[in-house]
Computed example of a mutant assay.
Amino acid sequence: MQGELLERFADTQSALIAALDAGDTEAMIAYTRDLGGITDALRTQGVLRADASTRSQLESLMKFNTAAAQRLRFLRDHVERRVAAIQGEQAANTYANAIPRR
């Protein structure tokens, strides 16, 4: 069951990233909701406190989270610039990579 959930998580994260890239708002909302359900199921099963192999899989899946977060920051900046342009203002460059470096 854990393997199936982790696979669904990876597939759903990939689909979310594709929706972000395509600007498909409805799909973004649906995939985000799906990810919430999958994450809850993983927590319920105790996967987040699992063995080293599962933790390794989860760490690799975090790359999907990072990719999605970067796209969201970029899209937010794009929307803020468009709103500022509509209002006749000049938007500051707000896009920044806020992901902590290790």
Rank of each mutant, 00 (worst) to 15 (best):
N93L: 11
Y31K: 09
R102W: 09
R55N: 14
R43W: 06
E59Q: 13
A96D: 04
E26V: 12
I99H: 06
T66V: 13
A67P: 04
E59R: 12
L58T: 00
F74Q: 15
T54W: 01
A18M: 02
L16K: 02
R81S: 14
H78V: 14
A52D: 11
A50E: 05
E89C: 07
Q90F: 06
S56P: 07
R49S: 13
D51V: 00
Q87Y: 01
A15E: 01
A96R: 12
A69D: 09
A98G: 06
S53Y: 07
A92T: 11
A10S: 11
E89P: 01
G3K: 13
I17F: 07
A69Q: 11
L16Q: 01
S60W: 01
Q57M: 14
R76F: 06
A69I: 04
G88R: 05
D51F: 14
L5F: 05
L5I: 05
E59A: 08
A69F: 07
F74L: 13
L61F: 09
R82T: 12
I38Y: 04
T25S: 15
A10G: 04
L61R: 04
M28C: 10
G23N: 07
D11A: 13
L35S: 02
Q13R: 07
Q2H: 09
T54L: 09
A19R: 00
R49D: 10
R55Y: 07
D34W: 08
R102A: 14
I17A: 14
Q90M: 10
R102G: 08
Q45L: 15
L48W: 07
T12R: 01
T66D: 08
Q45T: 04
G88M: 05
L72P: 07
Y95F: 13
T32M: 03
G36M: 11
T12W: 02
A10T: 11
T12D: 03
A22G: 02
I17G: 10
T12I: 03
S14H: 05
E4D: 15
D21K: 14
T32K: 02
V47D: 02
E26W: 01
A41N: 01
I17W: 02
R8E: 07
S14Y: 01
S14C: 10
R43H: 10
E59Y: 14
T32R: 06
M28N: 05
E7A: 15
H78K: 12
E7N: 11
M62F: 12
Y95S: 03
I99C: 07
A41T: 04
T94G: 15
R71T: 06
A91W: 01
E7W: 03
S53N: 12
E80A: 15
V83K: 13
A19I: 01
T94S: 14
T32E: 11
F9P: 04
Y31I: 10
A15G: 09
A22P: 06
R76T: 09
D77A: 15
G23M: 06
D24C: 01
T12C: 06
Q70D: 08
R33E: 12
T44G: 09
E4S: 12
R82K: 13
G3M: 12
Q13N: 10
Q90T: 14
I86F: 04
P100D: 13
S60P: 07
F74C: 08
R101S: 14
L75F: 02
D24H: 06
L61E: 00
T32D: 05
A68W: 03
